[in-house]
Design a protein around this nucleic acid. Sequence first.
DNA 1: CGCTGCCTTGACCATGATCAACGCACGTGG
DNA 2: CCACGTGCGTTGATCATGGTCAAGGCAGCG
Lengths: 238, 238
Amino acid sequence: MSAHAIIQKLQSIYDLTTQERQTIGSLPVHVRDAKAGETLVREGDRPTQCCLVISGLACRFKVVADGSRQIMSFHISGDVPDLQSLHIDVMDHDLGMLQAGKVAFIPHAAILAMNERHPRIAAALWRNTLVDAAIFRQWMVGMGRKSAYSRVAHLICELVVLSQSVGLSDYAIERTPTQEEFGDALGLSVVHVNRTIRALRENGLVSTNGRQLLVADWEGLKSAAEFDPTYLHLKKAA
Amino acid sequence: MSAHAIIQKLQSIYDLTTQERQTIGSLPVHVRDAKAGETLVREGDRPTQCCLVISGLACRFKVVADGSRQIMSFHISGDVPDLQSLHIDVMDHDLGMLQAGKVAFIPHAAILAMNERHPRIAAALWRNTLVDAAIFRQWMVGMGRKSAYSRVAHLICELVVLSQSVGLSDYAIERTPTQEEFGDALGLSVVHVNRTIRALRENGLVSTNGRQLLVADWEGLKSAAEFDPTYLHLKKAA
DNA sequence: CGCTGCCTTGACCATGATCAACGCACGTGG
DNA sequence: CCACGTGCGTTGATCATGGTCAAGGCAGCG
């Protein structure tokens, strides 16, 4: 039931059989509420369980010496942001909630046992971590070689497609991060994110409804972002 | 024999038994020479084999619309830069040689069969891809939130530690990339990389011998870079 | 009613990009 | 053996993208 989210997520990148879905659905999970701003797992921790996001918005981040933050990924319903802790003992970054929601904890032992018996599920999970890495690479391209305008547009495209791929929203971002969070993800200041979003609005590419970002011109946004969803490795492209 | 390199690499992040080393050593490999500048695997390809670097310097990169390049990782002896192609069918980036060397190709089928029979080897390979992802995250922190000075210092630290971890060189970079390649990896221009390296030299942190970079003050370099090798997840830290 | 969190805008500044040359080592062909 | 070309490092001058500082607005909530 609470594992429904992860099944839907894995289905978006990998074909699972009914039996495999049942196996995943019967994993032991411990669900709890998580508040906005809460840090779920910390750099240096050695987790013995993985954290599944059921609702809300999570992110992975590091804090640099001067106090600034780099967000490395956003995570919505179905994501397991610390899946890597299955095979990497020490956390090299923090995992926190940006917007309140429910999270489920699943013991490593249960997942490892499942993986031994179900190589296809193991492959799906491995694939999931590889798609994460592909997204990191894409973000690197943005931060290294693209303008702020193109980068912001790209992140919006990505979040929209990922929301869609798990059936959460259509041409909108399920849980829009704040502009400060956009900045921390893109390596930009809040001020510049604000101006860039304004420029996107003035160019008719997006519109805002309070905090929520809505796509006004999908093709235009994609081309401003040079967005090609291949790197998300979804079964069906957007 | 040619698989010796990959065994040494995996050993640096995971304990393998003698029998496991033998299993890896008996993988079928096809070795060939690769020239500098050669592209081994291209964006859009659907590889049926993985590429093992035996010698030389390889990198993963993407080319942006305006022609600029983002290098996403450097790879030396023992690395399998496209290991992800085992579970991600379509390449979302290119893999090329920066300095000539030897590469070996190993069929996916052979690796997948090995993984089914040897879950610990599979875990080691999975772990290897997760360490790659951890390095991507670290680079994101640099590009998003650190100065050019700190970033260049950090990359030098990383390349030195990785050279050391497979026994290739001591307080030096085995295969020093050109300054242009440094720039493409760090999101900087050649000119600025040059000035930054000069600054590092003037501060007594590095020295140069032709192209080769040598560490002159390891502690100083580490602190300029805020370098903490945890993210490399080596068995023994530097 | 008054915080608090977030969006917004203006003025000024700095990090790093761009443009343009030059030097230097190495390799190659006449 | 030397002339030339090529790839890479180096440096100066100028420019622009995006950062920093400062302040105000507005909606939601206790």
